[in-house]
Design a protein around this nucleic acid. Structure first.
Lengths: 224, 224
DNA sequence: TCCCCGATGCGCATCCTGGTCGTCGAAGAC
DNA sequence: GTCTTCGACGACCAGGATGCGCATCGGGGA
């Protein structure tokens, strides 16, 4: 899952970004409204955390712009104000959820998880494929009942594959959702991580869970 | 689907071309407006990705020329500017969609898919013919419920046949939409791939799904 | 230490070519 | 109308080149 944080107060922004990264998300941040808009347009973020009071371009205007362009991200508004009028205005503008400052980081995490899941039309917090179980809330993976430890990046790749289970996913798409802006897509990292994952959860030959579509990408699940 | 990318900034161009190829499209590229116009006139592209700021001939002029010649391609404009005036000018010139830089690759892919589908008048993301099902989003194929693995090229041919289901399609047309400039049409590749497809999805004799129209081409579906 | 990521080389699926065989259809003879 | 003949077109096969995917190694960073 890839997340954008638009917040102008550096300590808060830093705290949120760090917390989300620790939770295994790919996170970018923007310090004002204009930067936020540009970033949002540049990337298919799954979730955008958006402060309302921002320099240059306020959060609600930004949200309006995004929705006008049919941006698919789920938006979580962060605000100091909490009146019914504010709340209505935010949700009317196309926000998916609403969080009033001050809030606990736990709260952020919970809502982000919920939104990310909703975004891919998954009701269940648990994805089951064959004897593999991925718990998207607990962020745990078991195969045939035995728990499997994944690194943050490994989990991120698996999570994205789960979100699009049964669909052919190109390397580029995986890249887009697992990496932030820091790196360049001119390498075989994705292959490498598919390899790691297979070694841990899909050791048999031929691979039954993560199937290769030569020249196209990978598919998770989808039997036969 | 065959796509032309007209973009003068090499890194961006390369990234887009590579990504689209990975997604199974036949892609050519042009580095300036004149080259772009020449390529567009030389080939029945389904989609053209067109930068506005270009050397020699700018994107809007190019677009005007194409529309004057009734070129059928769907055009996706790429631009750094994003004012209402720009947007209106682009769409008035006959563009089908509009993408503001910087953008994520996945955004490009989504819009290209949407345009390609619209272009062939398909609402559904899934094509069903008899007991054959082709999911154009998931890029999966099933016959009588059983999934069928196709290679990238096999899928590309089938996708094009789906797009023109019920119509007679010549070899040349298939070739045009499945291959880029790299190869020459002086062979029987298309026949060969029709053969591959039939073996996988249409094994019965006589072939019910992919019918031969001697001296003309092939038809997908269209009973009797 | 564990995780992350770029690079290299090998093996194989995929792709294409060229050739041969089978088949369809038109035209002509009866 | 029917049968025959011939030409052309399409189907299928198999060998070989290509390039993709995968495993692995090793350096760098947290």
């Amino acid at each position: 899952m890839r997340i954008l944080v638009v917040e102008d107060f550096p300590p808060l922004s830093r705290a949120i970004v760090q917390g989300l990264q620790e939770a295994g998300y790919a996170v970018d941040s923007a310090g004002d409204g204009e930067e936020g808009l540009a970033s949002a347009q540049a990337c298919p973020y799954d979730v955008i955390l958006l402060d309302i009071m921002l320099p240059k371009l306020d959060g609600l205007s930004l949200l309006h712009q995004l929705r006008k362009q049919h941006h698919p991200a789920a938006v979580l508004l962060l605000t100091a104000k909490d009146t019914v009028a504010d709340r209505v205005m935010g949700l009317d503008a196309g926000a998916d959820d609403y969080l009033v400052k001050p809030f606990a980081f736990e709260e952020v995490l919970a809502r982000v998880r919920a939104m990310a899941r909703r975004r891919y039309g998954q009701r269940e917090a648990q994805v089951v494929i064959d004897d593999l179980e991925v718990d998207l809330v607990a962020r745990t993976v078991t195969r045939a009942g035995r728990p499997i430890a994944l690194s943050a990046r490994e989990y991120a790749v698996l999570e994205y594959l789960c979100a699009r289970r049964g669909h052919v996913v190109t390397r580029m798409e995986i890249w887009d959702h697992v990496y932030d802006f820091a790196t360049e897509p001119s390498s075989n990292v994705v292959d490498v991580y598919i390899g790691y994952l297979r070694r841990k959860i899909d050791a048999d030959h031929p691979h039954k869970l993560i199937r290769t579509r030569r020249g196209q990408g990978y598919v998770l699940g989808e039997p036969e």
